[in-house]
Simulated scan of single mutants.
Amino acid sequence: MKEISPKELEQLLANGEALNIIDVRETDEVAEGKIPGAVNIPLGLIEFRLNELDKEKEYVMVCRSGGRSGRACKFLDSYGFKTVNMAGGMLAWAGIIE
């Protein structure tokens, strides 16, 4: 599984990179703040929302600490999607949130 550090992700965003970030936390967790531009798809709903994803794009998966997003990566990878897990999750994120 590919990984990216929160600092690397923050730098890519600061450089204006167009990234596809999926936050797999529950909606109440996301309400406390998320990475700007991230789309919330709770882990339990990923399998039902595969039609919203594009196998040509790479997705950066985010959760609270990195565990759920890692599971989401493995699941999506098994369906042929390209994913990267943000190590440490939002607990390690020091960038801006919305």
Rank of each mutant, 00 (worst) to 15 (best):
P6W: 07
E26P: 04
V30L: 10
A18D: 15
E17F: 14
I41A: 02
P42W: 05
G89A: 09
M1H: 10
F75I: 07
R49E: 15
V39R: 03
D54A: 07
T27A: 15
E3T: 15
K57Q: 13
F48S: 15
M86D: 08
G89M: 12
C73D: 03
E29D: 12
D77W: 00
Y79H: 13
L13W: 06
E3R: 02
M86C: 12
V30H: 13
I46C: 06
F48A: 14
A38E: 01
K57L: 12
V60Q: 09
A18T: 14
M61F: 10
F75N: 14
F81G: 04
G66N: 08
V62R: 04
M90E: 07
N51E: 15
D28G: 01
A38T: 08
S69I: 11
G89H: 12
A72M: 02
R68K: 06
A14Y: 06
L13P: 11
E17W: 08
F81A: 03
E26K: 05
D23V: 03
K57S: 09
V62S: 01
L45G: 01
L91T: 13
I22L: 02
E56L: 11
A72D: 06
K82Q: 07
K34D: 14
E8Q: 12
A38V: 11
E26T: 09
G95C: 04
M61A: 03
R49V: 15
D54T: 02
A14S: 14
I4W: 11
V24Q: 01
N40V: 03
I22G: 04
S5F: 02
E98S: 13
C63T: 00
C73R: 04
A31K: 15
V24W: 02
D77E: 15
R49W: 10
E8A: 14
G88W: 01
R71P: 11
S78P: 07
I22W: 06
Q11W: 00
G70I: 03
V60D: 09
I22Y: 06
P36W: 12
E10C: 09
A94E: 14
L12W: 11
G70C: 00
I41Q: 00
G44C: 05
I22F: 08
